[in-house]
Design a binder for these strands. Sequence first.
DNA 1: TACAATTAGATTGTGCACAATATACTAACT
DNA 2: AGTTAGTATATTGTGCACAATCTAATTGTA
Lengths: 146, 146
Amino acid sequence: MKKLLLDNQLCFPLYALSRQVTALYRPLLERLELTYPQYLVMLLLWETDNRFVGEIGDRLLLDSGTLTPLLKRLEQKQLVTRKRNPADERQVTIQLTEAGQALKNQAVDIPTQLQEGLNLDDKQIINLRIQLVTLLNQLTKTDTVN
Amino acid sequence: MKKLLLDNQLCFPLYALSRQVTALYRPLLERLELTYPQYLVMLLLWETDNRFVGEIGDRLLLDSGTLTPLLKRLEQKQLVTRKRNPADERQVTIQLTEAGQALKNQAVDIPTQLQEGLNLDDKQIINLRIQLVTLLNQLTKTDTVN
DNA sequence: TACAATTAGATTGTGCACAATATACTAACT
DNA sequence: AGTTAGTATATTGTGCACAATCTAATTGTA
């Protein structure tokens, strides 16, 4: 097999599919005025509020150079607040505002709507997800199950 | 299943894994002084040289807003040339320079090196790639219908 | 207590992605 | 020929990603 061919590498389908799936989210997220990475942060906060920046970064595998400006934009939209932790002033707690919590109601339908766009049944999606998560865990060596 | 949980969405593992795999390429590509998207363009040109910007974009699913500056950086590095097509001045032909062609020799080992970093055997990789390519084709096919 | 080492987050700079728009060119039609 | 529509690429602006560096706060150790 000629390994230098684009079609024979794992990397390209992964990279291209990731962008295509993000593009599927775009029209759905536009209504909430969220970008895709912002949506991921909100998903995390809807699960468990009041997280430190570092916790969000650990979970999403993003560093402060990405998260700090992103969180400032969410703060500008009045979806979250950013407060230094009095017990340790190095840490910044991110907390949902009322508007941020309320936005969850507008987001609940997104996973179902997206799945329709994918044209795959549950079984296929779960199977693919398991493979992706397995490989992801292998690379990060961290089992991030709640 | 609670669909709004991060772990239950297809999107996040796909997005995170794509970034992690790109990160695996980074140290390998650093030696060639290429970024990952630049590497993808070079892969295409090593397969078939003298492509129009539009052809590259069709293949990588990238638009001119991404490709134009990227190709200019490759031109600055003297890896490619950019020339307007005399037969149709709207088109720009991208051609490898000698240095650009020669770089292929330094790149041939990258797929093998990457695979070692992934710690997966051939069968697993091929299986995952087939699923990704299948889904990718489904999505891009429905795009062209629109 | 002093102070080096560590930690959390912010800042800076480069390079994608992509929407929206602009520009130059070509083709098609009257 | 002149107008109009369509096409290919370029430009502009916003928002990630991520490396490198900085600052301030905390911890470890003598």
